[in-house]
Structures are given as C-alpha cells and as structure tokens.
C-alpha cells in the first residue's frame, strides 16, 4: 500500500484507533479485574486496581461444590465437538455425492439443500420442540446436537461441494484404476486434500454451537445438562447482588473462547469471511 507522509493525519488516526480499542476492551477488562474485588470496592472504585486483591471469587466459581462451572464447560464442549464431528462427516458424504457422483436428480437435491440457507432456526423452533418431545429428545444432548447439525448442513454442503468439485478428475481415474472404491477415494484422498474447507466449516460450527443459547434454553431443562451460556444466565440470576462473583464466572466463561481465538485467529477470521463471501 502507498504511504502518505501526513504526520498529523496519521497521529489522529492512531489516537482514534487506540481510543476505540480501549472502548472495545474496557467491558471485558472491567469484568476480569472486577472479579478480584469485593462488592464495596466495585461500588466505590470501578476502575481501580483490586485492593485487597481477592482470589476468592474465582476460587468459588472453580470449586466443583460451589458452582457447576466445570459441568457446564463439559456440556458445552461435548455438544460442540459432537456437532462439529457430525457436521463434517455428513457434509463430506453429501458434498461428495452432490459433486462427484453422476445420478439423476442431483441438482434438484442440491437445490433442495440450498433452500435451507433461507430458513432461520428461530422460525422452526416451536415445532422443533414438539418434534423433539415426541422423539424423547428433550433434556438430552442430542436434542441440541441434531438440530444444530441440521441447520448448519446447507451452508456446509455448499462450501464442501464447491471445494470437492475442483479436485481434478485424473486423480479419481487413477484411483479407480488402482482399485479404489468411491468410499475409499473419499476417505483416503478427497478428505485429506480438503483440509482448508473442512477447517472452515468446523470453525463455523464451533463458533455457532459454542455461543448458542436459544435452542439449548428450550431443549435442556435439568441443570446437569446446562451449557456455558445457560450457566452464565442461571449463575447471574442466582447471585444478582454479588456482582464480583458473577464477574468472575463471566471471565472464566470467556477464557476458552478467547484462548481459542488467540490460537486460531487466522483460521477463524478466514473461515467466517469465506463462509460469508462465498454465499
């Protein structure tokens, strides 16, 4: 890019960006630091350094007997990883059939999946509740996992199919000559070659599942199944007047997502924007 030499413009630009960055981070930092304070100090000195510096709030949240933080963390992880795995597997098979096998009605089926891009989950959620009830999937991990997988499928199939299409035909021919069946070709050659697109759909599914609240709220009733966002809500309403404790819980609930973001930022941003731009 071309750099222009105007120094004042540049320093104004930096100042504004830094101010915006501080505003962006401030709520999170206040929560992090607030978790080390007691209520009196939080009330009198919102921005100050914790004095006395208390670990108790964080210890309480992490203590298995005093909060269900770890249980919620486990539930969120279980639901997320199963959702991601099923999504990757199902969309790989469907994407393969819709891109590399010739059969009558292929485009029709693909378009039928594509229509799903227009269906917002909120619209289906009441009948979905009735449906899951009749399938005995209420208050069950799979009552959350299966609808999440299903609603992610159209986008995933679209991305996977367009990637699989670009794999050269010669590869398939030589694999067939070597005695590869289509299943073997998919599992041994196509899937290993398709890491970029599979990473993208996995990340989209991870972020979606990890943050979802509406669907689990309807489906999961027992506290032992609560996901992390549900845990945040129930903890915050349980300790309405103990903000430092709630702030500690929120901060710890942010940690996994923030760590994941720091480690995989490049893939997350690429995945989310490629999912968006290709639509």
């Amino acid at each position: 890019m071309i750099v222009d030499g105007n120094k004042t413009a540049k320093s104004i630009q930096y100042t504004l960006l830094i101010a915006l960055a501080v505003l962006t981070l401030l709520p999170m930092l206040l929560a992090l630091v607030g978790g080390f304070k007691n209520l009196a100090q939080l009330r009198l000195d919102l921005f100050g350094w914790p004095d006395p510096f208390l670990w108790e709030n964080y210890v309480d949240v992490l203590h298995p007997k005093r909060s269900r933080f770890f249980l919620s963390l486990f539930n969120s992880m279980l639901i997320m990883s199963t959702t991601v795995m099923l999504g990757v597997i199902l969309s790989s098979f469907a994407g393969f059939a819709l891109s590399r096998i010739k059969f009558p009605g292929r485009e029709l089926i693909f378009n039928f999946f594509l229509v799903g891009l227009l269906f917002p989950p909120a619209v289906a959620i009441l009948p979905l509740y009735v449906q899951l009830k009749s399938m005995y999937l209420l208050d069950n991990y799979f009552g959350v996992i299966l609808p999440q997988v299903a609603f992610a499928l159209p986008m995933q199939i679209m991305l996977v199919r367009s990637f699989f299409k670009q794999i050269p035909m010669e590869l398939e021919e030589s694999a067939t000559i070597d005695g590869c069946t289509q299943l073997q070709f998919l599992v041994r050659i196509v899937i290993p070659l398709s890491k970029p697109v599979l990473t993208t759909i996995a990340i989209l599914a991870m972020v979606g599942s990890w943050n979802s609240y509406f669907l689990p709220l309807l489906i999961l009733n027992s506290e032992k199944y609560f996901t992390l966002p549900m845990g945040v809500m129930s903890f915050a309403s349980q300790y309405v007047y103990n903000w430092p404790l709630v702030l500690a819980y929120i901060t710890l609930a942010m940690v996994p997502a923030v760590i994941f973001y720091m480690l995989a930022q490049k893939y997350i941003i690429e995945g989310l924007t490629s999912g968006a731009v290709k639509q």
Binding site: L25, M28, N211, M233, M254, F260, Y261, I268
Partner: peptide
C-alpha cells in the same frame, strides 16, 4: 474479539 463472545456473555 467481541464477536467471538456469546451474546449471553
């Protein structure tokens, strides 16, 4: 960064 947090948080 705020985008990756859940709306609930």
């Amino acid at each position: 960064l705020p985008y990756i947090l859940s709306e609930v948080i």
